[in-house]
Design a protein around this nucleic acid. Structure first.
Lengths: 220, 220
DNA sequence: TTGACAACATACTCGGTAGTATGTTTGCGT
DNA sequence: ACGCAAACATACTACCGAGTATGTTGTCAA
């Protein structure tokens, strides 16, 4: 009999992951206790520890999931058969959208990068960190490729690649720091904001569309 | 008799502030213990608690100092009697430089903004947070003013002011996330990096100098 | 029916940490 | 010389939080 193997590990697993993402996002790693996550689930520690052997493993799982989400956001654009500018635009829009729509996961992702700070204690943890840095690098490389293509074709102005790439990415990541999800999950505004951000970011590369309008609705 | 009132509160105070900034930067607020700061000073908790009544007060002091440093970085440019573009360039260069040269304080500053997350527990703490947000707002307003001037004069292209401002500032703040201070405190490279960042950021506003060179020395 | 296991909840241990209470030294005014 | 207070260090308390050990309930197969 074929088990319902569609769910990655069962819905419970997903529930905990989601709750953990929100807690880590709101309070950071250190300030978040397993009890906090459990309370957020309306349960107790037992349930969390039944699925995750340690707090660090839980965090790593959230981080890994966040990385998947980030990749999923840019891959359609990356795989598009188009010129570098259009590919970059699609990738950037996808990323900016994800930054807002999956806000919790994305903030945890950025926190996780800074978490070299917490010092990789165990050997296993060092491996997890190394793997994560490799993924982060792969993510950046996808953008770097398209930027290099654009520079070679003379359609993008890039000074120092490393600095420009970092500046470009941090601009797309910007919403993580100031965007707060709407109570009504309206995606329209998200698209408008993403559009503005991508336009600004791409102008930094010397790419300028003539669409100077902004469709952001300033609520009340 | 006039006491040596030059030192803000005595050198000891400054030492602790500096050590705390480095610890908070490396490990974040929650993961940093008072004992950690004390060990970093080669002393014990007693010394820290002699100058700061609580961990939160210590953090607030670091945060306030960081805010001062940030203001000092942009004020010369802001006060310059020049056109908006030149003022913005000076402000931006000053800010980008500070982001690298005072790396610890600046990272704590950004962490502190996200610290609404930790929930303002006491009434006093809520006031400190409110005051800090007001200062942050004043800081942003200095940039907003110059951007508005530039837009009015038609020398800057700004879509949605709020989004553009946030994108512009986060670009300048970028180094906080990837810059690591050199062992030799060489400032030359810092200037070159800042120059590249500011060029990218200002291009996003439609301001383009024709200086397409990058003088960053890629070590080894 | 029963045994066995998954899916938790409950009750603990134990190390770390904020904050406090209490020494101890040093310098300085008188 | 003496008192005294600043500037710490030391010792302690109280609590919280990660991890563990054990109990409880439902389900399902034989």
């Amino acid at each position: 009999m074929s088990a319902p193997a569609q769910k990655p590990k069962s819905d419970r697993y997903e529930e905990i992951l989601e709750a953990a993402a929100e807690c880590f996002q709101k309070q950071g790693f250190s300030a978040t206790s397993i009890d906090t996550v459990a309370r957020h689930l309306g349960s107790t520690k037992g349930r969390v520890y039944h699925y995750f052997p340690s707090k660090m493993d839980l965090f790593n799982a959230v981080r890994d999931r966040a990385m998947e989400i980030a990749f999923d956001g840019i891959r359609p654009g990356y795989d598009t058969d188009a010129d570098p500018i259009e590919r970059l635009r699609l990738m950037s829009m996808g990323h900016a959208r994800v930054m807002m729509l999956r806000h919790s996961y994305m903030q945890v992702l950025l926190d996780g990068l800074q978490m070299q700070r917490y010092g990789a204690t165990t050997e296993f943890q060092r491996q997890a960190m190394a793997r994560h840095l490799a993924e982060r690098n792969a993510f950046e490389t996808m953008f770097r490729e398209v930027l290099t293509l654009g520079a070679d074709q003379g359609v993008m102005t890039i000074g120092h690649m490393s600095i420009t790439l970092q500046s470009y990415l941090i601009t797309l990541n910007g919403p993580v720091f100031w965007y707060r999800p709407r109570s009504d999950g309206s995606a329209d505004n998200v698209d408008a904001i993403a559009h503005d951000i991508v336009r600004y970011a791409m102008r930094g590369l010397g790419i300028d569309d003539n669409d100077n309008t902004s469709t952001i609705s300033t609520g009340a």
